[in-house]
Design a protein around this nucleic acid. Structure first.
Length: 172
DNA sequence: CCCTGATTCGC
DNA sequence: GCGAATCAGG
């Protein structure tokens, strides 16, 4: 994949909107998040809001010696509107019911965990693929909570999708 | 372990 | 210029 004008333009747009490099890579397609980050730097449009501080690292290269770059990132944040959009920040924790002793309540009465409402391109092998809303609607999304490696859904949606026969009978 | 961005350097 | 490898941090 080469960086056409359109692709660069889209990159600029998405980056300015605060999407993460991996999300942008997913939408562009054909490139890794590293490629996106590399391009962002070459375009000199890094540092937006303040996702991760730049501690100016120096580890590799034992030779070289004359590595200048003493420029301090003088960009004093006039404002940091960026609210971390990363998956980590939005992740929701919820515990499975401690094995109900009496009878399992009907699914309709179970508290539904907050979904991350991810778009199709944002799903990974570990995100819950339970659909939310109308697939034909603009705001259609997927649950997106952690789905472990045991299945396509998070704990909650797994219980909804794979109810034991006995449980379904009771809820009926 | 999942993720984030930053940097280096061989190509 | 490009981006994998690597680093640093959450």
């Amino acid at each position: 994949m080469n960086w056409t004008d359109e692709r660069v333009e889209l990159l600029r747009k998405l980056w300015s909107e605060g999407l993460s490099a991996s999300q942008i890579a997913a939408q562009l397609g054909g490139v890794s998040r590293n490629a996106v980050i590399g391009k962002v730097h070459r375009l000199k449009l890094s540092g937006r809001g303040r996702a991760t501080a730049a501690p100016a690292r120096q580890k590799k290269a034992t030779q070289g010696a004359s590595m200048q770059k003493s420029v301090t990132r003088a960009a004093s944040a006039t404002r940091h509107v960026t609210a971390t959009i990363g998956a980590t920040a939005l992740q929701v924790q919820f515990d499975a019911e401690p094995v109900a002793r009496h009878y399992i309540r009907p699914v309709e009465n179970v508290v539904v965990p907050i979904s991350r409402n991810l778009q199709l391109v944002e799903l990974t092998e570990r995100t819950c693929k339970w659909p939310n809303g109308d697939p034909l609607s603009e705001d259609f999304s997927f649950c997106g909570n952690d789905a472990a490696e045991t299945g396509p859904y998070c704990k909650y949606h797994s219980r909804v999708a794979f109810q034991p026969a006995a449980e379904r009978r009771r809820a009926r």
